[in-house]
Each structure stands twice: as structure tokens, then as C-alpha cells.
Amino acid sequence: MRESDVHPTLRAGALALLVLIALVEVTPYLWMVSTSLKSLPEVIAFPPTLLPSEAMWSNYAEVWGSAPFGDYIANSVIIATSIMITQGILACLAGYAFARMEFPGRDAMFYAVIACLMIPPQVRFVSIFLLLDNFDLLDTYAAQILPHSVSALGIFLMRQAFLAVPQEIIDAAKVDGAGTLRIIFQIMLPMAAPTLTAFLLFSFVFHWNDYFWPLVVTLEETVRPLPLGVAMLREQGTGSRWHLIMAGNVILVAPLLVAFVLAQKRIVKAFVFASIK
């Protein structure tokens, strides 16, 4: 069905609905940015103002100066990127094994992986904490990366994507003398790229925003990521300074938004592919 075939009223209706959904999604972010630029009296004033009467850029300077935010950002980048890369590589390898190799206990192991999807991290955190302590790994990047380096969801998604690759292509590659790793990374991966991109994106965003795990395994500030830094802006019992908290939140989400804008085309393509299949 071409665009021109659609009834104009229907088109207008669909457009209005999309605008509404976009507004619902975007308004909290705009509100956050607006609040981050207000003064405290303006933040708590009723009725609230839509835009700050005067943009208080100094809020950002105050937040930035209150703790080593540069370090937090660097830590966040290191942690979220490392998790994303290891999860991606291991998901491809394991996904391939489950999709295309035959070995005893394969299905049982696959079900075990699926079962992992159901267990919330809060259930295992005490034992992992003690384990990390035994290995003397608390307060390290490793403590924040290792427990997340394998993703059951990633393995599951990559297995499904690899299953969709026609066997003939793999056979042909083998005839031409390609090894398993070459088959996985050079032949099958490009065909499963949309799935992988979508997964890596979810992984990165989730771990970029993660507050719980880093709080559990870090006792010192040196290796802490950004969400913990932002949490330090919250007051306990002295009245929240929402303008500063929101400025911290803008600092937290800004890198993600920039990344989204830069990679927008690829991301949209990936999701379209993923949903067509």
C-alpha cells in the first residue's frame, strides 16, 4: 500500500497519535532540562513555570564541582563499554554453538541459559558479593564487569538470529575453507547484525544507568560510575535541591542522547530489520 492510498483523515489521525506518543516520551526529558536550569524557588513555585525565567547555567558548574564527575563519566564509559563488548563476543560464540553445533547436553544447557533470564539479579547478589570478596575483587572495574560479562538474553537472541541463516551459506563457506570463527564473525554476523546491534544497545543503556550493582560492589569512590555520583546529589532530610539533581540527571543521560543522535540511522535500521523477521 502506497502512502497516497491512505485516506487523508486516517493519515492525519495517525500523525496526531504519533505526535501525542512522542510528546509523552519527550516531555519528561524536556521537563528535566528545564528544571535543571531553574533556581530552587522557581522549581518549587506553584503554579510551575514551563521555562526558567533565567537560565541558571551555574547549576551545572555547581554539580560538576561537587564531586569528581569527570572520573565518574570515564568509569561509566569503561564499564558499560567493556560489558557491551564481552557480552557481544560471548553471545555470538555461545549463540552459534547452540544454533549450529551438536554436542551432548546442548538442549539442557540451552534451557539452563533460558532459566537465567528469569532470575532477578537481587537474588544472587549476596553470594556474588562474597565470591568477589574471596577473589579480592571488590572495588575494581572487574567486580562491575565480570558478573555481567555473559548475557543470557544476548545468547538467546543470537541463537535465534543464527538459526535464521540458511545452512547452504554456511556449507558453501566451509567448502571454501573457512574456519568456525570466520564463519561466525565474517559470514553469519553481518546477516545477524540488526539483532546484535539492538542487543548491544539495550545492554549499553542498561549498564550505563545501573545503580544497584555498582553500589553493591564498590566501597570506594575511585571506580564508581556516574549513577552513583548523581545519587549523591539527593538530600536526606534537608530538602532536595531539585535543580541540582536534575542537572546531574542531564549529565547522566546526555552522552546516551548524543550517541543515539549520532547512530540514529543505524539504530532505526536495526530495529526495522529486527521487527520484520
Binding site: S82, T86, T140, Y141, E220, V223
Partner: peptide, 11 residues
């Protein structure tokens, strides 16, 4: 990637 990252193991 996991262990060679800078600043690792400070305590």
C-alpha cells in the same frame, strides 16, 4: 579488557 583496565584493584 576485564582486568587490564586502568585504576583496577585500587584499595
Amino acid at each position: 579488557l576485564l582486568t587490564g583496565a586502568p585504576g583496577c584493584g585500587k584499595k
